[in-house]
C-alpha cells in the first residue's frame, strides 16, 4: 500500500458518498445517470467476487464491502426510492454499446481463462467506460449541478491517483498490471475534458456547470 493508492481509494469513497448523500438529502436523482450507477454496481460485483476466495487484508475486505453496499444503495435510491425523479428521457446512453465490446475484450485479453479472471478483466474494462452514460447525460442536458460535478471530480481524482500509484509500484516493487494500467489510463483520459470544464466553470463559482 502507498499513499497514492490510499488517497485514491479515499477519493473514490468520497465520490460515492457525495453522490449518495446528494440523492438522499435532496430526495431526488435529477441529473444523475442511473445507468452509470448500475454499471458501477456491476463493476464491483464482478470484481469483488474474490472476497470469497482470497484474503488480501482487512482494509481490502472492508473497502470492498463498503463499495458494494454504497453502490447498491445508490442504485436502490435511483430506481426504487426516488424513481419518480429519475430523468429517464435524458439517461438514454445505449449501454449495450459498452457491454458488448467489454465482454468480448475480456474474453480475448485476460491473465487466465478462468471465470474469476475473466470477470475481473470484465470489471476493469467496464469501469473504464461506466461513466459514459453520466457524461453523455450532462452533454445532453447541457448542464450539471455543482454537487454532481464534485462527484465527477473525486472520481477523476481517484483515477489520477491510481496512475500515480502504478508509477510508484513500478519503481518501488517492479509491479506492473498491464490490463489495469491500460484500462485505467483510458478511463482517466475520459475525465480530462470534464476536468477542464470543472476548473474553468465550477471552481470559478458559477455554481452550475453549463456546457458551451
Amino acid at each position: 500500500m502507498n499513499i497514492f493508492r490510499l488517497a485514491g481509494d479515499v477519493s473514490h469513497l468520497v465520490a460515492i458518498i457525495i453522490l449518495l448523500l446528494k440523492i438522499w438529502r435532496s430526495k431526488s436523482c435529477a441529473g444523475i445517470s442511473g445507468k452509470s450507477q448500475v454499471l458501477f454496481a456491476l463493476v464491483f460485483s464482478t470484481r469483488y467476487l474474490d472476497l470469497f476466495t482470497v484474503f488480501v487484508s482487512v482494509y481490502n475486505v472492508v473497502m470492498k464491502v463498503v463499495f458494494l453496499a454504497l453502490s447498491y444503495a445508490t442504485v436502490y435510491l435511483i430506481y426504487m426510492r426516488f424513481r419518480n425523479s429519475y430523468d429517464s428521457e435524458n439517461d438514454t446512453f445505449r449501454v449495450e454499446f459498452l457491454l458488448v465490446p467489454v465482454i468480448g475484450l475480456s474474453f480475448l485479453e485476460n491473465y487466465a481463462f478462468t471465470p474469476l479472471e475473466i470477470l475481473w478483466t470484465f470489471s476493469i474494462f467496464l469501469e473504464a467506460v461506466a461513466i459514459m452514460p453520466q457524461l453523455f447525460m450532462i452533454t445532453k442536458t447541457g448542464e450539471a449541478e455543482s454537487i454532481t460535478t464534485h462527484y465527477l471530480f473525486f472520481l477523476g481524482l481517484y483515477r489520477a491517483l491510481y496512475i500515480a500509484n502504478w508509477v510508484w509500484r513500478y519503481h518501488m516493487e517492479g509491479f506492473f498490471d498491464q490490463i489495469a494500467v491500460v484500462s485505467g489510463v483510458v478511463q482517466t483520459i475520459f475525465y480530462c475534458d470534464f476536468f477542464y470544464l470543472y476548473v474553468t466553470r465550477v471552481l470559478r463559482g458559477k455554481g452550475k456547470m453549463s456546457l458551451p
Binding site: R5, R47, D50, V56, S57, F67, E117, N165, D177, Q178
Partner: peptide, 10 residues
C-alpha cells in the same frame, strides 16, 4: 499467461 493473478488493488 502473464503474471498478476492475485489482485490486491480495489
Amino acid at each position: 499467461e502473464r503474471e498478476q493473478a492475485n489482485h490486491d488493488e480495489l
